[in-house]
Design a protein around this nucleic acid. Structure first.
Lengths: 206, 206
DNA sequence: GCATTTACACAACAAGCGTTACGGTTATGT
DNA sequence: ACATAACCGTAACGCTTGTTGTGTAAATGC
């Protein structure tokens, strides 16, 4: 029984949702034509019509992941450090949707690391994210809320911190409940806000 | 032409090495019986003899990953913050072997996140790693090299930091050369060593 | 020295994968 | 109204996957 109404736009959304559900359930490695088709109560013939080849499905999945992540509801961002905090909080798996998104994201790293082209995409994507963060850091510095220092380096450090926190929270949600994640992030921001220790030459020779 | 000498212990090492090469080359998602067999110039029959089922191969690969990571040459660790720094530096992809190890590690997250049992293993593994780090942090605190504060929280934060740094460095080695990784880590340690800002109530309501 | 077990190669299997060809139904353009 | 295209089910293809069974040469135990 084919679709009687030609709302092919809504159909596309259905397909995307099915892809999303498969990704959330079985990870990026479990993304298969038949799994998506089953989620749609359809056959692989439908999918080959929307995606000529598997790589197009994968590309769509990646695009979907990026757009859904970007379209996630952001908390109201203030100025200065508050804006930095808001941006970092938006990354953490504090809601069910954010958890799904992050889980899919992490699971995609396997595929991405195996493909140099995809690796490049990811490198660019994260660089862009760092750059966005860098602007917020620089703004906070100009407000005097963060000590001086290369904003790019601070941004890279902050991004590292939340990225690692995401991974740990995904694997051990019991050990990283919402308030704990927020606490850890605030600890980090507090140390950032304090001036760096000048005498810090406890550094051992490599 | 079967092995003439009965060094079945050495044979096991050959198998492990082949598994490792496959993992390094094609990631955890590319771990297949035939790929490993090809790396050994053997057939799948050999592998089924060592590993009754695929899950046993996967388990062995995970074990291999853990043991090789643990057996990586550690830099001489001093006392206090220096020991913390050494432990964190040992995680970063600063050598070719560490890069392989980390790449395989990250690529395994896809498989692990899809399997609740494996997820639990990883949760325990990382918890244990945090605990080890917590001891080092507590020791540094007793030496007065780190300000007071829950050592477990500091350890969790530090582990987050290096974990995220590993991921970023893997995807964008050009943007994260060795010295840059060390710089970022030292930045982080410097902020840790400085006393937290007491007036830090720039915090926006969630 | 003979029986048993170990350590493989070889070959085939069913299942799942992406891909392709074909047909029929519905929408679209003229 | 009629030709054309879009949409999608059906079915099969070839390939790869993990798994299994059989055969055989070497190692081992007695």
């Amino acid at each position: 029984m084919p679709r009687t109404k030609g709302d092919h736009e809504a159909r596309r959304r259905d397909v995307s949702e099915a892809v999303w559900r498969v990704l959330a359930a079985h990870g990026f490695g479990g993304l298969t034509l038949r799994a998506v088709a089953a989620e749609l109560d359809a056959t692989t013939g439908l999918l080959t019509h929307y995606f000529p080849a598997k790589r197009d499905l994968v590309a769509h999945a990646l695009d979907l992941l990026e757009r859904r992540t970007a379209a996630r509801p952001r908390r109201p961002a203030g100025k200065g450090v508050s804006a930095v905090r808001a941006a970092l909080l938006d990354v953490l798996p504090l809601t069910a949707e954010a958890t799904d998104s992050n889980r899919i994201w992490v699971s995609s790293w396997d595929t991405a690391l195996a493909d140099p082209a995809l690796s490049g995409d990811y490198a660019r994507k994260y660089a862009q994210s760092r750059d966005k963060l860098r602007e917020l850091v620089a703004a906070a510095q100009q407000l005097g809320e963060l000590p001086a220092g290369d904003p790019a380096r601070i941004a890279a450090g902050a991004q590292s911190f939340v990225l690692g926190l995401v991974v740990q929270a995904l694997f051990d949600p019991a050990a990283f409940p919402l308030h704990h994640q927020v606490e850890l992030l605030d600890d980090y921001l507090a140390t950032l806000a304090s001036p760096p220790s000048s005498s810090g030459d406890h550094v051992a020779p490599a």
